[in-house]
Write a protein that binds this DNA or RNA. Structure first.
Lengths: 210, 210
DNA sequence: ACCTGAACACCGTTCAAGT
DNA sequence: ACCTGAACACCGTTCAAGT
């Protein structure tokens, strides 16, 4: 025991306060990791605190309640999704149809690679999303991105003339619905035997475009 | 105390075993009611038991765990949704386009009137749906209903020729996606100011049909 | 077969206290 | 300002026991 006490003195042990003034982000990161490892049902405030190396009540210095941490995780998820969509879309700035298809692929990939973050963003776990301004902001920014692509497609006569925001809900809804049904296991194997989600979405979007 | 013991003997008190051998269904019913009143986050096994008038451990005589009760509630929800869709569709057996539109309206109404049951059916709360045969059966029966309507529409040249199951995923995905985004508060007010969900879905399905 | 009550581990949240 | 530890109410699940 003398040894361990000694080592504690000369080199800081990981169980010390190593959140370098940024416990808030450390908690969000820990939450994302738990989500990836144990899923939505495995996400507890106490586990998040433990993984960040603080006591179970420390998170309350940064988040008023669990919902608030979930809002922060969802916001972080939306930020990442937005960045990936932005990148995919700006890679094909001269080709609206490609923007649509590659944007959809990016959305699908995000859902597949971050399944439980995606679920927490879109499956009603967050109950009063309107109370979290940064969540509302990034989600409406993301919607605007969809509107832009839709408008570009309309200008190129790839999508029919119609109010762009209405068309955007339609396109995003089509994409989101197929992805959601797939994550729920509601797409029958008779379809999945022949096509992956990307192909199903491509088919569906192909239906809407000319 | 003599009085209470006497009254217990001559007339059965409500706190006695009044689940007439059908506690299982009483628990499902209690679960649906709690879902409607307190939402998904308010649904606990202990509350369900209390509402059904039994001890907190009584449900374990009928369901191995909470997931299993959730599966039963979801199955019951699907049964109701199926019945309502069936009824709406058979009311317009000579008019495929009407079947599609009225089926969609029924789906939307079900989601709006049973929001939290709908969420529990489709939002990943049920984690191993494949383990519950009656859930799988009714959900695949419901999918077959969509396929039938799609085929009728294809025969009437209202939907383009394509594998009916693929087209069914597309149509259901479109409907489900818009409804899900709406329940999540992800449909911007700029759109909701002008159109309700029914109209948005009608627009989207109008896009797919000729 | 069906149900109860005690028990256990875990959870979200609060609060007095420490630095 | 940031964090800890005890405490409270609630939860899912197990189990010995009662009818």
């Amino acid at each position: 025991m003398t040894v361990s006490r000694f080592s504690l003195t000369i080199s800081p042990m990981p169980s010390k306060k190593y959140h370098h003034g940024d416990l808030k982000n450390a908690l969000i990161k820990a939450g994302v990791e738990i989500l990836a490892k144990e899923g939505v049902s495995g996400l507890s405030l106490r586990k998040v605190a433990q993984r960040a190396g603080v006591s179970h009540s420390a998170p309350y210095a940064h988040f008023p309640d669990k919902q608030s941490l979930i809002a922060a995780i969802s916001t972080e998820g939306f930020n990442q999704l937005y960045a990936e969509l932005e990148s995919a879309i700006s890679s094909h700035s001269k080709n609206p149809k490609k923007q649509l298809i590659e944007g959809a692929k990016t959305y699908i990939r995000f859902a597949e690679e971050n399944t439980d973050t995606f679920k927490i963003m879109f499956s009603g776990v967050l109950e009063k999303e309107k109370d979290y301004p940064s969540f509302v902001e990034i989600s409406s920014k993301t919607f605007k991105l969809v509107v832009e692509v839709v408008q570009a497609c309309q200008s190129a006569a790839i999508l029919p003339a119609a109010p762009a925001d209405l068309m955007a809900v339609s396109v995003w809804g089509q994409l989101h619905g197929i992805v959601s049904l797939a994550l729920e296991g509601q797409v029958p194997h008779t379809v999945l035997d022949r096509h992956n989600i990307q192909e199903i979405v491509s088919f569906a979007i192909g239906q809407m475009t000319t």
